[in-house]
Protein backbone atom coordinates (compact mmCIF):
# COMPACT_ATOMS: atom_id res chain seq x y z
CA UNK A 1 0.00 0.00 0.00
CA UNK A 2 2.78 2.38 0.83
CA UNK A 3 5.03 1.70 -2.10
CA UNK A 4 3.89 3.40 -5.22
CA UNK A 5 5.82 3.05 -8.44
CA UNK A 6 5.84 6.19 -10.55
CA UNK A 7 6.94 5.79 -14.11
CA UNK A 8 7.32 8.91 -16.20
CA UNK A 9 7.72 9.35 -19.90
CA UNK A 10 11.48 8.87 -19.72
CA UNK A 11 10.91 5.59 -17.95
CA UNK A 12 14.03 6.12 -15.87
CA UNK A 13 13.27 7.41 -12.41
CA UNK A 14 11.08 4.84 -10.76
CA UNK A 15 11.06 5.72 -7.14
CA UNK A 16 9.16 4.78 -4.06
CA UNK A 17 7.21 7.01 -1.79
CA UNK A 18 7.74 5.10 1.41
CA UNK A 19 7.21 8.09 3.61
CA UNK A 20 3.61 8.54 2.66
CA UNK A 21 1.41 7.47 5.51
CA UNK A 22 -2.31 6.93 5.68
CA UNK A 23 -4.73 4.77 3.81
CA UNK A 24 -5.01 5.09 0.08
CA UNK A 25 -8.65 5.76 -0.92
CA UNK A 26 -8.25 6.24 -4.67
CA UNK A 27 -5.85 4.33 -6.89
CA UNK A 28 -5.41 5.40 -10.50
CA UNK A 29 -3.59 2.81 -12.59
CA UNK A 30 -2.42 3.19 -16.17
CA UNK A 31 -5.00 5.87 -16.89
CA UNK A 32 -4.96 7.33 -20.40
CA UNK A 33 -7.37 10.09 -21.39
CA UNK A 34 -8.14 11.11 -24.96
CA UNK A 35 -10.09 14.07 -26.30
CA UNK A 36 -10.96 12.81 -29.77
CA UNK A 37 -7.60 11.80 -31.26
CA UNK A 38 -5.58 13.91 -28.89
CA UNK A 39 -4.18 12.19 -25.84
CA UNK A 40 -4.28 14.38 -22.73
CA UNK A 41 -3.02 11.98 -20.07
CA UNK A 42 -0.43 9.21 -20.40
CA UNK A 43 -0.23 6.16 -18.13
CA UNK A 44 -1.29 7.94 -14.98
CA UNK A 45 -0.44 6.13 -11.75
CA UNK A 46 -1.50 7.95 -8.62
CA UNK A 47 -2.69 7.20 -5.11
CA UNK A 48 -4.85 9.58 -3.12
CA UNK A 49 -4.66 9.26 0.67
CA UNK A 50 -7.61 9.47 2.98
CA UNK A 51 -8.17 12.59 5.06
CA UNK A 52 -5.37 14.46 3.41
CA UNK A 53 -5.18 17.25 0.89
CA UNK A 54 -3.52 16.30 -2.38
CA UNK A 55 -2.46 19.12 -4.68
CA UNK A 56 -2.21 18.61 -8.41
CA UNK A 57 0.16 21.21 -9.83
CA UNK A 58 1.75 21.86 -13.20
CA UNK A 59 1.65 24.26 -16.11
CA UNK A 60 -1.58 24.92 -18.03
CA UNK A 61 -2.62 22.04 -20.27
CA UNK A 62 -0.60 19.48 -18.31
CA UNK A 63 -3.66 17.33 -17.65
CA UNK A 64 -4.22 18.01 -13.97
CA UNK A 65 -7.84 19.18 -14.38
CA UNK A 66 -8.48 16.30 -16.77
CA UNK A 67 -7.32 13.84 -14.12
CA UNK A 68 -9.42 15.56 -11.47
CA UNK A 69 -12.52 15.22 -13.64
CA UNK A 70 -11.77 11.49 -14.04
CA UNK A 71 -12.30 10.87 -10.34
CA UNK A 72 -16.04 11.60 -10.47
CA UNK A 73 -16.42 10.75 -14.14
CA UNK A 74 -17.28 14.32 -15.05
CA UNK A 75 -15.49 13.61 -18.31
CA UNK A 76 -18.51 11.45 -19.24
CA UNK A 77 -20.31 14.70 -20.03
CA UNK A 78 -17.82 15.48 -22.81
CA UNK A 79 -18.82 13.28 -25.73
CA UNK A 80 -15.36 13.19 -27.35
CA UNK A 81 -13.59 12.22 -24.14
CA UNK A 82 -12.40 8.64 -23.62
CA UNK A 83 -10.80 7.29 -20.46
CA UNK A 84 -8.92 3.98 -20.29
CA UNK A 85 -7.12 2.23 -17.43
CA UNK A 86 -8.50 1.71 -13.96
CA UNK A 87 -9.47 4.11 -11.21
CA UNK A 88 -10.48 2.48 -7.96
CA UNK A 89 -12.36 4.20 -5.18
CA UNK A 90 -12.28 2.16 -1.99
CA UNK A 91 -11.22 -0.90 -4.07
CA UNK A 92 -14.11 -0.56 -6.57
CA UNK A 93 -13.48 0.26 -10.18
CA UNK A 94 -15.46 3.43 -10.85
CA UNK A 95 -15.87 2.47 -14.52
CA UNK A 96 -17.41 -0.91 -13.71
CA UNK A 97 -20.81 -1.39 -15.36
CA UNK A 98 -22.59 -1.84 -12.03
CA UNK A 99 -21.36 1.53 -10.81
CA UNK A 100 -24.05 4.24 -10.78
CA UNK A 101 -22.48 7.50 -11.76
CA UNK A 102 -25.10 9.30 -9.66
CA UNK A 103 -23.94 7.46 -6.54
CA UNK A 104 -20.30 7.98 -7.50
CA UNK A 105 -20.74 11.73 -7.77
CA UNK A 106 -22.55 11.81 -4.48
CA UNK A 107 -19.48 10.22 -2.88
CA UNK A 108 -16.99 12.27 -4.89
CA UNK A 109 -18.15 15.88 -4.83
CA UNK A 110 -16.79 18.73 -6.86
CA UNK A 111 -16.10 22.43 -6.46
CA UNK A 112 -15.41 24.38 -9.63
CA UNK A 113 -13.05 27.12 -10.69
CA UNK A 114 -15.66 29.85 -10.88
CA UNK A 115 -18.25 29.93 -8.11
CA UNK A 116 -21.40 28.55 -9.74
CA UNK A 117 -24.32 28.81 -7.33
CA UNK A 118 -27.70 27.97 -8.83
CA UNK A 119 -29.95 30.98 -9.38
CA UNK A 120 -31.95 29.84 -6.36
CA UNK A 121 -32.00 30.83 -2.70
CA UNK A 122 -29.06 30.00 -0.45
CA UNK A 123 -31.22 27.39 1.26
CA UNK A 124 -32.26 25.75 -2.02
CA UNK A 125 -28.67 25.71 -3.24
CA UNK A 126 -27.62 23.60 -0.26
CA UNK A 127 -30.84 21.54 -0.29
CA UNK A 128 -30.45 20.67 -3.98
CA UNK A 129 -28.20 17.63 -3.47
CA UNK A 130 -30.02 16.16 -0.44
CA UNK A 131 -33.33 16.58 -2.28
CA UNK A 132 -32.33 14.84 -5.50
CA UNK A 133 -30.77 11.99 -3.52
CA UNK A 134 -33.78 11.76 -1.18
CA UNK A 135 -31.45 11.98 1.80
CA UNK A 136 -33.78 13.94 4.04
CA UNK A 137 -37.35 12.72 4.35
CA UNK A 138 -38.50 15.64 6.50
CA UNK A 139 -38.20 19.40 6.35
CA UNK A 140 -36.68 19.43 9.84
CA UNK A 141 -33.87 17.12 8.76
CA UNK A 142 -33.29 19.15 5.64
CA UNK A 143 -33.08 22.32 7.74
CA UNK A 144 -30.47 20.57 9.89
CA UNK A 145 -28.43 19.49 6.87
CA UNK A 146 -28.50 23.03 5.47
CA UNK A 147 -27.39 24.51 8.77
CA UNK A 148 -24.69 21.90 9.32
CA UNK A 149 -23.31 22.28 5.80
CA UNK A 150 -23.22 26.06 6.03
CA UNK A 151 -21.51 25.83 9.41
CA UNK A 152 -18.90 23.42 8.08
CA UNK A 153 -18.28 25.75 5.15
CA UNK A 154 -17.90 28.69 7.52
CA UNK A 155 -20.80 30.55 5.95
CA UNK A 156 -23.49 30.12 8.60
CA UNK A 157 -22.91 33.39 10.44
CA UNK A 158 -22.97 35.38 7.21
CA UNK A 159 -25.89 33.54 5.64
CA UNK A 160 -28.25 32.51 8.45
CA UNK A 161 -30.39 35.66 8.19
CA UNK A 162 -30.68 35.52 4.43
CA UNK A 163 -31.25 31.86 3.63
CA UNK A 164 -34.16 32.75 1.36
CA UNK A 165 -32.12 35.30 -0.60
CA UNK A 166 -30.53 34.28 -3.91
CA UNK A 167 -27.14 32.62 -3.67
CA UNK A 168 -25.97 34.72 -6.58
CA UNK A 169 -26.26 37.83 -4.38
CA UNK A 170 -23.31 36.76 -2.20
CA UNK A 171 -19.77 37.98 -2.76
CA UNK A 172 -17.40 35.83 -4.83
CA UNK A 173 -15.71 34.29 -1.81
CA UNK A 174 -19.03 33.65 -0.09
CA UNK A 175 -20.39 32.10 -3.28
CA UNK A 176 -17.45 29.72 -3.40
CA UNK A 177 -18.02 28.74 0.24
CA UNK A 178 -21.69 28.25 -0.67
CA UNK A 179 -20.57 25.88 -3.42
CA UNK A 180 -18.40 24.02 -0.91
CA UNK A 181 -21.35 23.83 1.49
CA UNK A 182 -23.52 22.56 -1.36
CA UNK A 183 -20.93 19.87 -2.14
CA UNK A 184 -20.59 18.67 1.47
CA UNK A 185 -24.37 18.63 2.03
CA UNK A 186 -24.56 15.25 0.25
CA UNK A 187 -21.96 13.74 2.61
CA UNK A 188 -19.23 12.94 0.10
CA UNK A 189 -16.04 11.08 0.99
CA UNK A 190 -13.85 12.92 -1.47
CA UNK A 191 -14.08 16.54 -2.61
CA UNK A 192 -12.49 17.56 -5.89
CA UNK A 193 -11.57 21.21 -6.19
CA UNK A 194 -10.62 22.69 -9.53
CA UNK A 195 -8.68 25.89 -8.83
CA UNK A 196 -11.29 26.96 -6.30
CA UNK A 197 -9.55 30.24 -5.48
CA UNK A 198 -8.51 31.43 -8.91
CA UNK A 199 -11.47 33.83 -9.17
CA UNK A 200 -11.10 35.15 -5.60
CA UNK A 201 -9.19 37.94 -3.89
CA UNK A 202 -6.44 37.12 -1.35
CA UNK A 203 -8.68 37.53 1.70
CA UNK A 204 -11.40 35.25 0.33
CA UNK A 205 -8.65 32.85 -0.74
CA UNK A 206 -7.24 32.75 2.78
CA UNK A 207 -10.69 31.88 4.15
CA UNK A 208 -11.12 29.05 1.66
CA UNK A 209 -7.65 27.70 2.45
CA UNK A 210 -8.41 27.73 6.15
CA UNK A 211 -11.66 25.94 5.40
CA UNK A 212 -9.91 23.29 3.29
CA UNK A 213 -7.59 22.55 6.19
CA UNK A 214 -10.58 22.04 8.51
CA UNK A 215 -12.47 19.92 5.98
CA UNK A 216 -9.51 17.56 5.78
CA UNK A 217 -10.62 16.07 9.14
CA UNK A 218 -13.76 14.67 7.52
CA UNK A 219 -13.09 14.54 3.81
CA UNK A 220 -10.34 13.63 1.41
CA UNK A 221 -9.54 16.61 -0.75
CA UNK A 222 -7.92 16.76 -4.16
CA UNK A 223 -7.19 20.26 -5.35
CA UNK A 224 -5.90 21.55 -8.65
CA UNK A 225 -4.05 24.80 -8.17
CA UNK A 226 -1.83 27.15 -10.12
CA UNK A 227 -0.49 28.68 -6.97
CA UNK A 228 2.52 26.80 -5.68
CA UNK A 229 2.35 28.75 -2.43
CA UNK A 230 -1.19 27.50 -2.03
CA UNK A 231 -0.14 23.91 -2.69
CA UNK A 232 2.66 24.28 -0.16
CA UNK A 233 0.38 25.86 2.45
CA UNK A 234 -2.60 23.53 2.37
CA UNK A 235 -1.64 20.13 1.01
CA UNK A 236 0.03 17.11 2.51
CA UNK A 237 0.75 15.49 -0.85
CA UNK A 238 1.65 17.07 -4.14
CA UNK A 239 1.66 15.65 -7.64
CA UNK A 240 3.50 17.53 -10.36
CA UNK A 241 2.26 17.08 -13.94
CA UNK A 242 3.93 18.04 -17.16
CA UNK A 243 2.68 17.52 -20.74
CA UNK A 244 0.18 14.86 -19.71
CA UNK A 245 2.61 12.87 -17.55
CA UNK A 246 2.84 12.61 -13.81
CA UNK A 247 6.42 13.66 -13.20
CA UNK A 248 6.65 13.46 -9.47
CA UNK A 249 4.45 12.64 -6.52
CA UNK A 250 5.26 12.81 -2.86
CA UNK A 251 4.82 14.60 0.41
CA UNK A 252 4.38 18.29 -0.19
CA UNK A 253 7.40 19.20 1.93
CA UNK A 254 9.66 16.93 -0.08
CA UNK A 255 8.37 18.10 -3.44
CA UNK A 256 9.03 21.71 -2.62
CA UNK A 257 12.27 21.33 -0.68
CA UNK A 258 13.93 18.45 -2.50
CA UNK A 259 12.31 17.71 -5.85
CA UNK A 260 13.82 14.64 -7.47
CA UNK A 261 13.05 15.57 -11.05
CA UNK A 262 14.64 18.47 -12.86
CA UNK A 263 11.32 19.57 -14.39
CA UNK A 264 9.71 19.78 -10.96
CA UNK A 265 12.67 21.80 -9.79
CA UNK A 266 12.32 24.12 -12.78
CA UNK A 267 8.60 24.53 -12.29
CA UNK A 268 8.61 25.29 -8.61
CA UNK A 269 11.43 27.75 -9.00
CA UNK A 270 9.53 29.45 -11.80
CA UNK A 271 11.74 28.53 -14.73
CA UNK A 272 9.02 26.73 -16.68
CA UNK A 273 5.26 26.98 -16.67
Amino acid sequence: MNSVVMPNELGTTDYQTELIAGKSIIQARDVDVFYGDKQALFGMELDIYENSVTSLIGPSGCGKSTLLRCFNRMNDVISTCRVTGSIELDSQDIHAPEVDVVALRQKVGMVFQKPNPFPKSIYDNIAYGPRIHNMTPSKVELDEVVEKSLKRAGLWEEAKDRLDKPGTGLSGGQQQRLCIARAIAVEPKVILMDEPCSALDPIATAKIEELIDELRQRFTIIIVTHSMQQAARISQHTAFFHMGYLVEFGETGDIFSAPKDERTQNYITGRIG
Binding site: N72, M74, V102, N116, F118, P119, Y128
Partner: peptide, 26 residues
Protein backbone atom coordinates in the same frame (compact mmCIF):
# COMPACT_ATOMS: atom_id res chain seq x y z
CA UNK B 1 -24.16 28.69 -18.36
CA UNK B 2 -22.44 25.31 -18.63
CA UNK B 3 -21.14 25.89 -15.10
CA UNK B 4 -24.68 25.39 -13.74
CA UNK B 5 -24.99 22.09 -15.56
CA UNK B 6 -21.58 21.04 -14.23
CA UNK B 7 -22.63 21.98 -10.71
CA UNK B 8 -25.75 19.87 -10.97
CA UNK B 9 -24.02 16.87 -12.56
CA UNK B 10 -21.22 17.22 -10.02
CA UNK B 11 -23.77 16.75 -7.25
CA UNK B 12 -24.93 13.52 -8.85
CA UNK B 13 -28.07 14.81 -10.54
CA UNK B 14 -29.29 12.99 -13.62
CA UNK B 15 -29.85 14.79 -16.89
CA UNK B 16 -33.61 14.94 -16.36
CA UNK B 17 -33.18 16.30 -12.84
CA UNK B 18 -30.72 18.87 -14.11
CA UNK B 19 -33.09 20.05 -16.83
CA UNK B 20 -36.09 20.13 -14.53
CA UNK B 21 -34.46 21.65 -11.47
CA UNK B 22 -31.73 23.89 -12.84
CA UNK B 23 -31.94 24.62 -16.55
CA UNK B 24 -35.66 25.25 -16.98
CA UNK B 25 -36.02 27.44 -13.86
CA UNK B 26 -33.03 29.46 -15.04
Amino acid sequence: PQSLRDASYGLGATQTETIKEVILPA
